[in-house]
Design a protein around this nucleic acid. Structure first.
Lengths: 108, 108
DNA sequence: CCCAAGCGTTAGTTGACTCTTACGTTAGAG
DNA sequence: CTCTAACGTAAGAGTCAACTAACGCTTGGG
């Protein structure tokens, strides 16, 4: 999860993901969309690939990249855990309010 | 979204979130859980707060922190957009397969 | 008013990250 | 086999992020 978060925390890498999402593209096509040098994009692609966010497929001398949405599953679950936690905390707060209101008559 | 991603990409900040999730804690209590200095934690708390991930509440000389789960909404939507995109891409792939199979009889 | 508790802020250092330039590698054309 | 296209990799420079040490700022107690 660490690698995925670090990967998508970078603005340029998010742009790459946006490009590749929807269409498999070659490294060259991706690099052509930016004003930085090709090696810079290549390094970003390596980071995204190592994080499992991008998948590489070789075709002759070209390398095609596509997004691997499953890679986001862990992060999604992590974020949702905070949502669940906040619901639980709210529930606990309400119950202790009730205990205080009823005063000495806790549920359970 | 950038700030939120940068904030949660840091391991120590995720530990802080895990601590604070479920119980409102003071800066001192949080700092006591780590082996780094208190100012370091204070800086992390500032970053989390500026990202909107943490909310600060003052009580006398103490400062209490709690998680703000709404802050994750944008990131969640972003991640889910990749899921949707991949479904769309799959759908398009299937349809073009059909077009190729039926051969000159495209749907619509 | 004076002091201590509880924090945040600043300055400076170290390590990590992003970029460019230069070079290495592999696949296919001729 | 040689050449070129399409890449990745390595080395170095500049920038940013995380930490420590030292200091400053409030709040409440005596």
């Amino acid at each position: 999860m660490e690698a995925v978060l670090k990967a998508i925390a970078e603005p340029r890498r998010r742009e790459i993901l946006r490009l590749v999402s929807g269409a498999e593209l070659t490294a060259g096509e991706i690099a052509a969309s930016f004003d930085v040098t090709r090696p810079a994009i290549s390094q970003h692609l390596t980071i995204l690939r190592n994080a499992g966010v991008l998948e590489e497929r070789r075709e002759g001398t070209r390398r095609l990249y596509r997004v691997r949405p499953e890679a986001f599953g862990e992060v999604r679950a992590y974020l949702e855990s905070f949502w669940d936690e906040s619901l639980l905390a709210l529930k606990n707060a309400v119950e202790s309010d009730e205990r205080r209101a009823i005063s000495g008559n806790p549920r359970n």
